[in-house]
Design a protein around this nucleic acid. Structure first.
Lengths: 345, 345
DNA sequence: TTTTTTACCGTGAACGTTCACGTTATTAAA
DNA sequence: TTTAATAACGTGAACGTTCACGGTAAAAAA
């Protein structure tokens, strides 16, 4: 093993003191142009690479200029196929890149698991701040704060940690209103697992819209999918087998399940939207390229990611927060998968 | 600002030397059970968090136990919606987590751009190794090696850097054979942008299959999409407007474009596969939930990610590589979107 | 010419940890 | 009882930087 090339080697090679080399590395004033050039040449010649560890140690504050996005999920397979999560990550990446920060990605099978992937990250103290995805609740987030980390939560929280989330409730409210306005009175709902936080908000939106139309949401046939195509497919099967005569519309709590449901319907001879209307949630890119194109709620996932990162940077830089719980608005996208209900004989 | 809690503060609190605290932190022998407990209590009491910088500096080798996945793309928007990339990332994440490594994600608008997002990452010397996505070529990867980084390339390379990729050529070869076997003689091809490396391999596979069937691939009507639903939609429009009478099948170089193409066809009254067969590439999750479900080539993206990470860790740990260019096999998935061609009047 | 300013660069210490070694009690062996 | 072995812990130095300060020479002002 060859010895490491240090700043002193460079200094000797350039015929100067190592402190001057440090000045060059940090682009400080107080160094002659000619000396600077000489030092830079030596750096190249010796293939010198500064030690991050030593740099950090020497500095007043040891910032790593790295933030982490922690995504605890029971079904990790699901994370990287989840458009909303990935687009949020995209937004975070955009803001981080903008500020010269690096982005660390950390998944965990469970939030509380001490052997989880971010346990080591934490003990190594490698990041300045953390964006914590609370899709499964916020266990673990509080502990991060206790440990001294700056944390922003993506999604729902009952605590005091700042958070950014999409307006799920008004999303399903508007979507349900759309179905009601078309004349639908018997809607089947395909929900996500109860453990996933946004489910409750989305259900509340549906409930409220029903009540506002003087309908009782408690009679609603419901099924659960796992936010996947397959889950929607199975849920549609379940709902249609028991309620095919009354239902005229299916409302899925995400697009993947809506598409899975459409697939089941089409496979079993139901025309969409002729026989059954279908609506989704998220507006993933493929939604408008389905046949028929999918009526859904657009989520501004990228924007959510940006806001998350901005909030975290505000905290890191000590700027006051304009709000501690930001809510990103959603938008109804009416497309081909919903229409007036069929006549029920 | 409060002063940082250091190992010495802990030592004083526990009534021992700071070196003993270090021993406790590193789970070394030579420390009495009682002392260890006392030190641990003090750590909790003072909320002590070790400085990663100092730890690294003190050690022989300064490993950061972090690897990076660098994804240079002109269209960054595309990265996080790209199933193949994200699944590869998933595979990398799995292996990294397994070994207690953290995963850094770095996108860049262009490979060569010195102001790119990973420029800072590099100068800060924060990662032990790098997985470099070469979808747009390998500019930049060589420089990383020069800088002393351990690098593995995801995709194609002409250099000597180890790489892992999927077997694109045999994929399109088998897929084309499938279409030929059904009786198709006039296939339209929807390609990706020439700048994307896998395009060439996929085209070669198609070419070879055609030649093997004594057909001339040079007469093939072609169009380019941007690997997006929209791109496939537009490409299908272009091909069908000029060749609708001869073509009986469309072969798209990824599933997104295939789905976009199906959308165009269905929108314009063509039955799939009755009037036109459509085939894709990648087998993204939604492929089998399309109506009709999509015939395509399954890419083992997660496996590719694992292999990439494994190779990188082999290099980092000094293990000999079993192969320096790994090729992950692909698999034909025959589904509903392809059938025997219609009779051409 | 003398004094003050300025630009450049070197000095010594500090950052918080780990490492190799040495020292002291304690226990086991002779 | 003396000697050797061991367990537990302390000592000093080192890791590669940055920082605050001081010094020197050249340039500008008096």
């Amino acid at each position: 093993m060859t010895k490491r090339v240090t700043i002193k080697d460079v200094a000797e090679h350039a015929g100067t003191s190592y402190q001057t080399v440090s000045r060059v590395l940090n682009n400080k004033a107080d160094v002659a142009a000619e000396t600077r050039a000489r030092v830079l040449a030596s750096i190249k010649a010796l293939n010198y690479r500064p030690s991050m560890a030593a740099r950090l140690l020497g500095q007043d504050q040891d910032r790593t200029f790295t933030i982490a996005n922690i995504i605890p999920y029971y079904d990790v397979d699901f994370v990287f196929g989840n458009d909303h999560l990935m687009q949020t990550l995209h937004g975070i990446d955009l803001e981080a890149t903008l500020r010269g920060y690096s982005l660390l990605l950390s998944t965990a099978h469970s939030a509380g698991d001490p052997a989880s992937s971010y346990a080591r990250l934490l003990e190594r103290q490698m990041v300045d701040g953390i964006i914590f995805e609370s899709g499964l609740g916020e266990d673990g987030a509080e502990e991060l704060v206790e440990r001294g980390y700056k944390v922003v939560i993506s999604g729902y929280t009952t605590g005091t940690i700042p958070c950014v989330r999409s307006d799920d409730e008004s999303g399903t409210y508007v979507l349900t209103q759309h179905l009601l306005a078309l004349g639908h009175r018997h809607i089947g709902v395909i929900m996500g697992p109860e453990s996933a936080m946004p489910v409750h908000a989305r259900w509340r939106g549906y409930e409220r819209a029903m009540r506002d139309a003087a309908l009782d949401p408690r009679h609603t046939p419901r099924a659960q999918g796992h936010y996947t195509f397959e889950g929607g497919y199975d849920a549609a099967a379940q709902l249609m087998r028991s309620h095919s005569y009354s239902l005229t519309a299916l409302l899925a709590f995400n697009d993947a399940m809506a598409i899975g449901a459409m697939r089941w319907l089409q496979e079993h001879g139901y025309a969409v939207p002729g026989d059954m209307s279908v609506a989704g949630f998220d507006d993933i890119p493929i939604a408008q390229y389905q046949t028929p194109s999918l009526t859904t709620i657009r989520l501004q996932s990228v924007e959510a990611g940006r806001r998350l990162a901005q909030t975290l940077f505000d905290i890191l830089d000590g700027r006051p927060l304009s709000t501690t719980r930001a809510v990103i608005p959603t938008e109804l996208k009416v497309r081909g998968s919903t229409s007036v209900p069929r006549r029920i004989e």
